[in-house]
Amino acid sequence: MWTTLLLIAVSLALGLAAWLLFLWAVKSDQYDDVERPKHRMLDDDPEDRER
């Protein structure tokens, strides 16, 4: 019985940790712009200086 309970507790704790990480990511705007960053490396230098 206690092994099952332990495993349940572990799985819930892992899920909770992942959820908290997700919460942090959303709150710190990590998902705000998923388009721009992947194109940024293609920008020429002059455009970079402008920003």
Partner: peptide, 14 residues
Amino acid sequence: TSDLLLRFGTAAFL
């Protein structure tokens, strides 16, 4: 959008 993302993420984990 970010509100929807929070709701979706929470729903997905649970």
